[in-house]
Structure formats: C-alpha cells, structure tokens
Amino acid sequence: MGQCLECDKPLVGRTDKKFCSDMCRNSYNNRLNSDSHNLMRNINNQLRKNRRILEDLCPDGKVTLPKSTLLAKGFDFNWMTHVRTTLKGTVYQYVYDYGYLAIENDFFVIVRDKRLEK
C-alpha cells in the first residue's frame, strides 16, 4: 500500500486510497488551497467593503461627494468589479451595482444601477 499524504501513516484498505481519515483529507486540502483562498477572500472582503461604503453614501440612487469622504470611510479605489461606458462615452467604474465617476475638483458621482436588481 502507501502512506497517508497528510500524516504518513500506513494506509489500509483500497489500493487507490490517499488518506487514512477524513480529517487528514480535509487538512491536506485546506492546506493546499489556503494561499489561493486567502487571496480571493481578501479581495472579496475589500469588494464587499467598497460596496457597503457606496451603498451607505448613496441611499437615493445618485449622489455627488468629495473623494475625501470615500477615503475617510476606507474605500479602496484599486478594487472594482467592472467598467461600464454610457452612450455618451462616459466611463463609470462599478462595484457590483454601484458605479462611481471622477468629476472636477476631486469630486465623485455615485450612482446605483437599478437594472442589476432582481
């Protein structure tokens, strides 16, 4: 037979067995995937935080406010979900259903795209 990929104990049973127990199998797979899962978890956490900030600041569907307000709340401009260009050629950056657009004097327009609601 072989040895458990996690704890090196001798394996008993099927010839294609890789782990001695469910606990070893789970530990092995969790360790194997932890780096990529942590990266995705951190990115998703920041996206959720950004969306929550936009939602809190834009309760009526559209608002204009200074960049400093977004930064003070912890908004991270490095993370967004997509970009949308209007028919007039204006490019909004989006975090899920909330878009933002830089305008003059370090102000931003925040909008909610109601088409994305279910």
Rank of each mutant, 00 (worst) to 15 (best):
N29Q: 00
K9I: 09
K88N: 06
V109M: 13
N29K: 01
K114Y: 15
D106N: 15
C24N: 04
Y96K: 09
E55D: 13
V91S: 13
C7H: 01
N105Y: 13
K73A: 12
Y96S: 06
C20A: 08
E55V: 08
V63A: 07
R48A: 14
D113C: 14
M40S: 13
L39H: 03
L71R: 10
N50D: 02
P66T: 02
L87W: 00
H82V: 05
L54S: 07
Y98K: 05
V63E: 14
D106E: 14
Y94P: 12
F107C: 08
F108I: 10
F75M: 05
N26V: 02
K73D: 07
I103P: 15
R84F: 06
K18Y: 04
V111P: 09
R41D: 02
K18D: 01
D106H: 11
F107A: 05
N44P: 03
I43H: 01
C20Y: 06
T86D: 08
G13M: 11
Y98C: 02
L47C: 08
D97P: 06
R115S: 15
C58G: 09
D16N: 15
D16S: 10
T85H: 04
Y98I: 00
F77Q: 09
Y100F: 15
L11Y: 14
D22E: 03
I103C: 10
L57G: 12
C20W: 08
Y28E: 06
Y28P: 06
I53Q: 01
C58P: 13
N29P: 00
N30Y: 01
V63I: 15
F77V: 07
L70Q: 08
K17F: 05
D8M: 09
